[in-house]
Design a binder for these strands. Structure first.
Length: 674
DNA sequence: TGTTATCGGC
C-alpha cells in the first residue's frame, strides 16, 4: 500500500519541471506524507476533540472518496481538494494540511494557482511560514493572489523584511500590485515608520487607480499616523469617498497616540452627527483615554447600550481603566462577569492590584490564573507580578519567576530582565540583580542601566553606580531622568555635593534635559541632608518646573528635622500641608519638628487639627522571612503568636549590645501619631 | 489575499 501511494505520487509529479524549489518541496514536505496519506488514523486524531459529527463524517467521506477515486485530475477533485483545504484552515490542523498537500501533488495540481493560495493560507494558519513560502516558490506562473497571500502571511507573523523584498520583486515582475498588496505593504511601512516608502506607495496607488479602496486608504491613514504625519492622515480621511468604522478608529487612534485629545472627542461628536455606530475598537480606544471616572461611566454605559460582548479586548481594557482609577472592586466584577478570560484579562487584574499596592491580592490573582483557568503566564504577566514581590519581601517568588523565565527562554526579553534587576536589587539581592544585568542575551537599554544604577544607589553603594554611569556614557547610551535620580541619590549618601551638582549640570547643559520633580527632590535632599539648607531653599526657588511638589518640600522637611532647623521645617511643612491637606504624614512631620525642639504647644495644636480632620496615619512596618513565610510587624507589635519569645530574645540582645558599648541614637527618632 | 484595539520595565 505504501509503495502504491509513492508510485502514484511520482506518476503525477514527474511530468513537472523539477526546479530546486519544487524538488525541495517534494522531498521535505510531500514525500513524508505520501506514505501516510492512505491511513485514516491521522484524520481521526485530528477530529478527536471535535463535537461536530457532521463535519467529521464529511471529512471521512471526503477522504474515502479520494482513496477510491481514479486519482485522475478533474474539476470535481479540485472542488473537493478546496473543501478539504478549507476544513484544514478552519481546524488549524497541520496534519490535514499535509495530507491535503500530498493529495494536491498526487492529483497533479501542484501548479494550480487557486489551490496554492489556499495551501499558503493553511500553512500560514498553522504557523508554518517556511512551508507556505515553499508552496509560493514552487509555482512557476504567479498571479497577484499568490503574491498577496505570501506577503500577508509574513505580515501576520510580524516579519517585515522578507515581504518588502517580495514586494520589490513583484514591482519588477509582469504582475501588477493591487489594493490588497498596498494595504499589506502599507502596514509594514507603518510598523517600520517608513514614511518614504509609504509615500511612494500612495503615488503608485493613485497611478494605478487604487486610490478609492477603503481598506487600503485605512492602511494609508495608519501609516501616516505612525509616522506622525497627522495632517496627511486627516487629508486622506476627509477626502475618502467611503469610510467604514475602521477608518474612524484609525484616525482616532492617530490622534489619541499623539495626545490630541480634543480632536478625538471632536471625531466622536462627528461620528454621532453622521450616525456612525461605534464598535468595540472605538470603545477600547476611548477607554484608554479616560483619566477620571466621569468619562469611564458614560463610555461603559454606551458599551452596555450597544450590547457589545465583553470580549478579551474590551474586557481587559475595562479592567485596566478601572484599576488605573483605583476602582479595583469594579475591575474585579468586570473580570468575574466575563464569559471567557485569557492571559491578558488576568494579567490586567494582576497589574491593577500590584500598581495600587495590593501585593497579596496581586499574587493571589496570579496564582488563580493558573489554578482556576489553567492559563500559563506570559512575559507581561511576570513583569506585572514582580513589583508585588517587593513590598512582601518575597525573594523566593522572585527567584521562582526568574527560573520560570529562564525555562521559557525569555532571557532576551528586555522589560522582563529590567524588572528582575529592579526586584532583586530592591529585595537587597544585588548579586542576582547584577547577574541578570550581565546576561549578554538581551540588548540593554537606558532602563536596564538605570535599574542597575538605582539598585546600587538604594543599597547604599556609591562607587558602583558612578562606574556604571561612566560605562553607559562611553557606550553612547543617553541617560534619562531616572539615571540621574540614581546617581544623585548616591552622591547624597556619600556627601559628595559638588560632584552631584556636576552631574546635575551635565544633565541640564550637555544633555539639555528638563529635570523632573524627582530629580529636583534628589538635589534638595543632597544639599539638605548635608546641612546646606539655605542652598537647598535657593535651589527650590530657582527650579524651572512649574510648582515644587510634595517630594521637593518633603526632602527639605526631612533635612530640617535632621539638622534641627525649626524655621525651615515649619516652612516646608506649610507648603506640604497646602499641597496635600489630607495627608496625615505631613501633620505627623510638623508635630515631630515641634517635638524635636521641645515646642509642646505646637505638638498639641497640630495633633488637634489632625483629629478634627479625622486623619490617622498608618504606622510603618518591617518584615522578616522565616522558612519562606513573611512576618510583618509594627513598633511594639505583640500580635505574633510567638511574641513573648521574640521580646525575650530582643531584651537579651539589647542587654548584650549595651554591654558591648552600643547605645541607641534617639535624637532623630520620629513619633508616629497613630 | 488586505485595514482599526487589550496587560508590562528604571
Amino acid at each position: 500500500m505504501l509503495r502504491s501511494s509513492w508510485i502514484l505520487g511520482f506518476r503525477f509529479t514527474r511530468k513537472l519541471y523539477f526546479s530546486r524549489a519544487i524538488s525541495t518541496t517534494y522531498v521535505n514536505v510531500i514525500h513524508p506524507h505520501l506514505i501516510r496519506v492512505r491511513s485514516l488514523q491521522p484524520l481521526n486524531q485530528a477530529f478527536a476533540h471535535t463535537s461536530d459529527q457532521g463535519l467529521v463524517r464529511k471529512h471521512v467521506l471526503g477522504f474515502r472518496y479520494f482513496m477510491t477515486a481514479t486519482l485522475e485530475p478533474s474539476a470535481t477533485s479540485i472542488d473537493d481538494l478546496l473543501a478539504y483545504l478549507r476544513h484544514a484552515i478552519g481546524l488549524r490542523s497541520l496534519q490535514l494540511a499535509r495530507q491535503a498537500h500530498a493529495l494536491v501533488w498526487i492529483l497533479g495540481f501542484a501548479q494550480n494557482q487557486f489551490i496554492s493560495v489556499n495551501l499558503i493560507t493553511v500553512y500560514s494558519t498553522c504557523n508554518k511560514l517556511s512551508d507556505a513560502r515553499l508552496v509560493f516558490d514552487t509555482i512557476q506562473w504567479k498571479n497577484i493572489f499568490l503574491w498577496n497571500s505570501i506577503i500577508s502571511a509574513y505580515v501576520k507573523y510580524t516579519v517585515w523584511d522578507e515581504p518588502l523584498i517580495l514586494y520589490d520583486k513583484l514591482l519588477n515582475s509582469d504582475v501588477r500590485p493591487d489594493h490588497f498588496t498596498f494595504s499589506s505593504v502599507l502596514k509594514i511601512c507603518a510598523e517600520l515608520c517608513d514614511s518614504l516608502r509609504g509615500e511612494k506607495i500612495r503615488v503608485l496607488m493613485e497611478k494605478t487607480g487604487f486610490c478609492s479602496d477603503v481598506v487600503a486608504l485605512n492602511a494609508l491613514i495608519v501609516m501616516y499616523c505612525k509616522c506622525e504625519w497627522l495632517t496627511f492622515a486627516r487629508k486622506v480621511f476627509d477626502e475618502m469617498p467611503d469610510r467604514n468604522i475602521a477608518s474612524w478608529n484609525a484616525m482616532i487612534s492617530g490622534y489619541a497616540k499623539l495626545g490630541s485629545i480634543n480632536e478625538v472627542w471632536e471625531l466622536v461628536r462627528q461620528m454621532h452627527l453622521e450616525r456612525v455606530i461605534l464598535d468595540g475598537v472605538t470603545v477600547v480606544q476611548l477607554l484608554s483615554l479616560c483619566n477620571n471616572k466621569n468619562l469611564v461611566f458614560p463610555i461603559h454605559a454606551v458599551l452596555l447600550r450597544i450590547g457589545l460582548d465583553l470580549d478579551f479586548h474590551i474586557g481587559s481594557c475595562l479592567i485596566d481603566t478601572y484599576a488605573k482609577l483605583g476602582k479595583l472592586a469594579i475591575s474585579r466584577r468586570v473580570h468575574e462577569l466575563m464569559q471567557c478570560r485569557n492571559v491578558v484579562t488576568w494579567t490586567s487584574m494582576v497589574a491593577g492590584y500590584a500598581q495600587n499596592g495590593y501585593s497579596y491580592e496581586a499574587l493571589e490573582v496570579f496564582r488563580e490564573m493558573q489554578s482556576i483557568d489553567t492559563i500559563k503566564p506570559n512575559k507581561v504577566s511576570l513583569v506585572s507580578v514582580l513589583p508585588a514581590c517587593i513590598p512582601l519581601g518575597d525573594l523566593t517568588l522572585c527567584k521562582q519567576i526568574h527560573g520560570f523565565s529562564i525555562r521559557n527562554q525569555w532571557n532576551s526579553e528586555i522589560s522582563l530582565s529590567n524588572s528582575l534587576i529592579d526586584a532583586y536589587s530592591k529585595l537587597g539581592c544585588l548579586d542576582h540583580a547584577r547577574c541578570v544585568f550581565d546576561d549578554i542575551c538581551y540588548e540593554h537599554d537606558v532602563i536596564s542601566w538605570s535599574s542597575m544604577i538605582v539598585g546600587y544607589s538604594l543599597n547604599g553603594l556609591v562607587k558602583e553606580p558612578m562606574l556604571l554611569f561612566d560605562e553607559m556614557i562611553q557606550l553612547g547610551i543617553k541617560p534619562d531622568n531616572i539615571t540621574f535620580v540614581g546617581i544623585l541619590s548616591a552622591c547624597a549618601r556619600a556627601r559628595m555635593i559638588e560632584k552631584g551638582m556636576e552631574y546635575y549640570n551635565l544633565m541640564t547643559t550637555k544633555y539639555g534635559m528638563v529635570p523632573t520633580m524627582e530629580v529636583c527632590s534628589c538635589v534638595v535632599d543632597m544639599l539638605g541632608r548635608n546641612g546646606q539648607l539655605n542652598r537647598a531653599l535657593d535651589f527650590i526657588k530657582s527650579m524651572s518646573i512649574d510648582e515644587p511638589g510634595p517630594s521637593v518640600w518633603g526632602a527639605l522637611f526631612s533635612a530640617s528635622l535632621l539638622h534641627e532647623n525649626v524655621e525651615m521645617g515649619k516652612l516646608a511643612s506649610k507648603y506640604l500641608l497646602e499641597l496635600e491637606p489630607q495627608n496625615p504624614a505631613h501633620y505627623v512631620s510638623l508635630s515631630n519638628v515641634y517635638a524635636a525642639s521641645g515646642i509642646w504647644d505646637g505638638v498639641s495644636e497640630v495633633r488637634l487639627e489632625m483629629k478634627e480632620r479625622g486623619l490617622r496615619k498608618l504606622p510603618g512596618y518591617s518584615w522578616i522571612i522565616v522558612n519562606s513565610k513573611v512576618h510583618s510587624f509594627y513598633v511594639s507589635d505583640k500580635s505574633h503568636p510567638s511574641s513573648s519569645l521574640i521580646y525575650a530574645v530582643l531584651d537579651r540582645m539589647i542587654l548584650e549590645m549595651k554591654g558591648a558599648g552600643y547605645a541607641p541614637e534617639i535624637k532623630c527618632l520620629s513619633q508616629d501619631a497613630c
